[in-house]
Design a binder for these strands. Structure first.
Length: 295
DNA sequence: AATCGTTCCTGATAGC
DNA sequence: TGCTATCAGGAACGAT
């Protein structure tokens, strides 16, 4: 499940390829699932809109991957639940892009659900593999994305230099009530945190996921602030998690899995107190926590 | 205005 | 063995 650390890992890997993906232009696009493209609605127009555009920058906003293109366009990719972006090489000489991605990537079965492939003019191909077909790609005019409701309402970036404790408090004030777990996952409160890292953050901060935001004290919020940044940075350093579907763009797994304390560790012992990790649902989402040391 | 339920999907897994 | 039912879950959307 790509969250902030996984998306950040992806864009960092994309930025340091050799030859660089940065500066390359779009040659062709292949899909077997036109619905993966949400904007423009017509796939042929999406393809035409990309043709010849050059990649100027690769950035992340929340869980979105943003390719800043020439002509003031932005290609937005959201990997959602089971999608992940991969890169490979294709032979321009043949001139006919194929519906597969090259290299050892194809040996990992999780990378076989290819639904969208971009062929770049310097031999790179970017592909989205997505078992459940929730991922999306959108082509925007830069100004239109920036003034869109979805984009404007995204909360602050928790790893930005100016993300102070005051800024976190202000962000959380958007909600007057509700379970802290759900609020941390709300992209309009803070951008980038999902099911895995909300559980991990709350374990580390010793806060029960069902606690109501209105009942959190200054001290609790302070711990959330510190721990949030610490865990997200640690996960980026590890190259993200690969508990199920996420893979780095070269196809390899991230190394965060052994570092996690609660997510999908139901029935195992809490690293801190030795009691059994529990799993309960909050709003349809699995929530993992230690009922003993999270208050 | 805020919150809740529904929808999109299909491989993996459990149950028989 | 092989079938079917259930589950996972981000976020847009419609309903309340």
């Amino acid at each position: 499940m790509p969250e902030l650390p996984e998306v950040e890992t992806t864009i960092r890997d994309l930025r340091k390829t050799q030859p660089p993906i940065l500066g390359a232009g779009f040659f062709d696009v292949w899909t077997d699932w036109e619905k993966i493209v949400k904007r423009p609605k017509d796939f042929e127009n999406f393809k035409k809109g990309l043709k010849g555009k050059k990649i100027k920058e690769i950035k992340r906003r929340g869980k979105n991957i943003l390719f800043f293109l020439s002509g003031n366009k932005i290609l937005l990719i959201h990997q959602k639940l089971t999608g992940h972006l991969l890169f490979g090489r294709w032979e321009i000489k043949k001139g006919k892009p194929e519906s597969k991605i090259s290299g050892p990537i194809s040996e990992d079965p999780i990378n076989r659900f290819l639904h969208l492939i971009f062929f770049l003019d310097n031999g790179w191909q970017l592909a989205i593999s997505d078992l459940r077909k929730f991922a999306k790609a959108e082509l925007w005019k830069k100004e239109e994305l920036e003034k869109s409701k979805e984009y404007k309402s995204l909360g602050p970036e928790p790893l930005d230099k100016d993300f102070s404790f005051e800024k976190l408090k202000k962000a959380l004030q958007k909600k007057r009530k509700g379970k802290i777990k759900q609020i941390l996952m709300d992209q309009n409160v803070i951008a980038g945190i999902g099911n895995i890292y909300s559980d991990e953050i709350l374990w580390e901060a010793k806060i029960h996921p069902f606690r109501d935001i209105s009942k959190l004290k200054e001290d609790d919020l302070k711990r959330i602030y510190l721990v949030m940044r610490k865990i997200l940075l640690k996960a980026i350093k590890a190259g993200g998690e690969s508990i199920s579907d996420y893979r780095r763009p070269a196809g390899e797994k991230g190394n965060f899995d052994p570092l996690r304390k609660v997510y999908r560790r139901e029935g195992k012992k809490c690293d801190r107190c030795g009691r059994v990790i529990k799993r309960l649902k909050i709003g349809g989402r699995s929530t993992h926590f230690c009922p003993n040391c999270q208050k």
